[in-house]
Computed example of a mutant assay.
Amino acid sequence: MRTKLLLAAAATFFTLTATAAPQGAGTERVDVVGAQPRQVQMAPFMFDNVQGLFELEDGRMLTVTGKVDGKTRTLYADFGDGPTEIVHVGKSRFVAVGKDLRFSFERPNSRRLPDTVRITNLAGRYVALAQR
């Protein structure tokens, strides 16, 4: 019985190591594609309320604009270097498409419009703060 188990374990080991070994002389190509943020349905008032001008700490302006094409609403953030699409990922949070940026729009309880935007990288490190 032990012999059969040892033979089965050895056969499994050799099979796994043979399939794990690289095939060829390193000629394979691996394409790595980054994860795309999962878009969440955005309420119409959210689309309207986050648009506007926000002053960054360094004096630059963050401009958030929107475009409506039929039933599709798209938001763009521009730091002065050209607009970048931002995707709503939930609870006043957006992620820039193709950039390592996350936007969190914050509003005081008494106001409907957000007055602060916290900008972080995808790892959660602080990048900038913008005020309306």
Score class of each variant (00 low, 15 high):
59 G>P: 11
58 D>I: 03
85 E>S: 01
68 V>H: 10
80 G>E: 10
51 Q>K: 00
122 L>T: 01
7 L>F: 07
96 A>S: 09
75 L>Y: 15
123 A>L: 14
83 P>L: 11
3 T>L: 08
11 A>D: 15
46 M>F: 02
110 S>M: 12
40 V>D: 00
96 A>C: 11
114 P>R: 01
7 L>W: 04
28 E>T: 12
98 G>R: 04
111 R>M: 13
20 A>N: 07
74 T>W: 02
127 V>M: 05
44 P>C: 02
54 F>D: 04
118 R>E: 08
16 L>C: 05
1 M>C: 08
102 R>D: 01
11 A>P: 07
33 V>G: 12
80 G>V: 07
86 I>S: 01
13 F>G: 15
71 K>Q: 15
124 G>D: 05
76 Y>M: 05
24 G>Q: 10
111 R>D: 15
7 L>M: 09
84 T>K: 03
89 V>N: 05
74 T>P: 02
43 A>E: 10
36 Q>V: 15
10 A>W: 05
69 D>S: 15
3 T>M: 12
94 F>E: 03
71 K>S: 14
14 F>R: 10
15 T>K: 00
65 T>H: 12
129 L>V: 12
48 D>C: 03
92 S>D: 08
26 G>Q: 04
89 V>Y: 01
1 M>L: 09
100 D>Q: 00
44 P>R: 00
85 E>G: 11
46 M>L: 01
66 G>L: 08
21 A>S: 13
49 N>C: 11
9 A>E: 08
14 F>T: 09
1 M>A: 14
67 K>S: 15
